[in-house]
Design a protein around this nucleic acid. Structure first.
Lengths: 242, 242
DNA sequence: TCAGTGAATAATTTATTGATTGTTCATTCT
DNA sequence: AGAATGAACAATCAATAAATTATTCACTGA
């Protein structure tokens, strides 16, 4: 069991290397087998097919992307508003840099999604859970005033669609997108927060790239090498409906 | 001049027919020439190339789509909130039905955009002008309380990205998208409107499909057959920055 | 029994070719 | 002159053949 697990890992490592260098289509099973010093046939004892190797890699990529974002939650001494903003900006920056520096990752994701539409749905759902947790906390502390948390979670997530893998929609620069997103968040925040009469909710400021993310990056780097188990992580809040 | 204009129109009519039936790639210049009872070479006295015929058709399509939406503006006895909501829902429904019933139109648009990226930028800008006009009016009447109208226009437009040609992003049904959009608009409206202390801004209701749109459809149908001039229409408000 | 093999086969991709199509332009009408 | 032609050429596409690749499975060695 443990033996066959390390073999499986070897395949994944080799595949990740080749997929990111040469792309999924140009990588052959025979090459992966050679990298792992085994026969092509043996690969099929660990994966049902070539696409399933890609699915596993994409799955892990998606999980670690959410981990980056979730790390903002563990950052102490922050208001719910700050958390929400940092999560949204982290999402923009993370996916923007991903497409910029690792174009093969997008290709892989597109291949996986076109073959397994459910994959995208689940990735988005995982991301929404983070939003929902923040909304929930903000609601509990009185910082937010929302009458339907699950529905507002979906709304928030939908309204920020443009800022996930933004290069798919536009060829604006990251700086332009950040300025735009600040305006979007300003409107949304005014919609979420109760207005103590008289003074309005302040504009959203573009968060510093280093603040929350250096924290997040180190947290992920630590968890990345260690407890890599197959199970979903526990959620802590109820599901987003739909 | 007038003579060569009607010839040009004949080409466009023939092209629109063939493009929507058989698609852009399967339509040949020879066929268009035959439809117009002329030689292939003569087409090139009116269009620089095949793609330019598609550009002209797409340009008109985009203009008439904005006209559908602009018609909401002429609908009397409506609050700015209602106008904004009706415009956004009209956009969702119009583009949804377009992709559903006229798949070749999407194909054409994608071909045009991949060849002329500027085309998309200008179409989006035209759409934003409608948003901006409503925001402006709402601001003037005191119904909205926005400190930066151009920036908020961009934010509003960006936050509703998912609901333009929604099938490109998701395979949700129209009914699902409408419910979702209602939640998005609820949050946004709370962000735009001043809260008289005590009672909150009401939730967005999904507008009736017939109300504003039957009005709009007839208005466009009327203008569609008649004054078809090449000029841009006058805007009436200042430009959206960027 | 079980991890692993590698030749055989089915499926897909790539290369090649011939046919079609977009575009030009010297020429013909009017 | 300007309007239109259609043969000529280059670019693109479709069809087929050739090569490569994914996948299976009867088999081997621990």
């Amino acid at each position: 069991m443990s033996e066959s697990d390390t073999t499986r890992e070897k395949i994944i490592v080799a595949a990740r290397e080749r997929f990111s260098h040469y792309g999924y289509p140009k990588t052959t099973i025979a090459e992966l087998a050679e990298d792992c010093a085994m026969s092509p046939g043996n690969i099929y004892r660990f994966f049902k097919g070539k696409i399933d190797i890609a699915v596993e890699i994409a799955r892990r990529e998606a999980l670690s992307a959410v981990e980056v974002i979730e790390a903002v939650l563990d950052c102490p001494l922050r208001s719910s508003r700050q958390r929400l903003e940092e999560v949204v900006f982290a999402d923009l920056r993370y996916t923007f840099h991903l497409l910029e520096n690792q174009p093969k990752t997008l290709e892989l994701a597109q291949i996986v999604v076109s073959d397994r539409p459910q994959f995208q749905i689940e990735s988005l759902r995982r991301e929404r859970r983070v939003f929902q947790r923040i909304l929930h906390e903000g609601q509990a502390s009185g910082e937010f005033m929302v009458d339907n948390v699950p529905a507002t979670t979906i709304a928030l997530h939908a309204a920020t669609t443009k800022y996930r893998y933004a290069q798919l929609f536009t060829n604006q620069t990251l700086a332009e997108l950040e300025r735009e997103l600040a305006h979007v968040m300003t409107v949304i925040m005014r919609g979420l927060m109760p207005t103590s009469e008289g003074h309005a909710v302040a504009e959203t400021q573009i968060p510093d790239e280093t603040t929350a993310l250096s924290f997040a990056a180190s947290a992920v780097a630590a968890s990345d090498t260690e407890n890599r188990n197959e199970n979903e992580m526990k959620t802590g809040t109820e599901e987003v409906s739909s």
